[in-house]
Amino acid sequence: MIDKQTFLNQFKEQYIGETSSLTLESEFRKIDSWDSLTGMSILVMIKDEYDIDMSADALKACITIGDVYDFVEKNVADA
């Protein structure tokens, strides 16, 4: 099982600027510093930290940070 707070902290590190108010319920594309480069950084973080190849389409299907966490958690469990 992946620690939710650890995942959230790793997710926050992919953004430039203030992220202290982010929670698992936050819609990550609505964050001011969101751009395609941030999306790529998130995918690389997931690969590096959890050895999961999350596709760009899978990331597009996620709305909240919690949705991304759920994807990673499910795929870690399946590995």
Rank of each mutant, 00 (worst) to 15 (best):
S21I: 08
M54N: 08
S26Y: 05
V44Q: 10
G39L: 03
D78S: 15
D70N: 15
R29A: 03
V44F: 14
F71S: 06
V76N: 04
D35W: 02
L24D: 05
D57L: 15
V76M: 07
A77P: 05
A77S: 14
Y15C: 12
E27R: 01
Y69H: 10
T19S: 07
A61V: 08
M54S: 04
A77M: 08
D51E: 13
K12G: 08
S36E: 06
I46S: 10
I2N: 03
K60F: 09
V72C: 12
A77D: 10
T23K: 06
F28R: 01
A79I: 13
S21K: 14
D70Y: 04
Y50P: 01
R29Y: 03
S26M: 02
I16N: 15
D53R: 09
M1H: 14
A56D: 07
S33L: 04
D70Q: 15
K47R: 12
A58Q: 11
E73I: 06
V76F: 00
I16R: 15
L8P: 04
C62I: 10
V76W: 01
K60E: 12
F71V: 15
I31C: 00
K30L: 13
D48F: 05
M45I: 00
V68K: 05
D32P: 08
D70F: 02
I31R: 00
K12S: 07
S55E: 05
I52S: 07
T19D: 06
I52L: 11
D67R: 00
L22K: 02
K30M: 11
T38K: 08
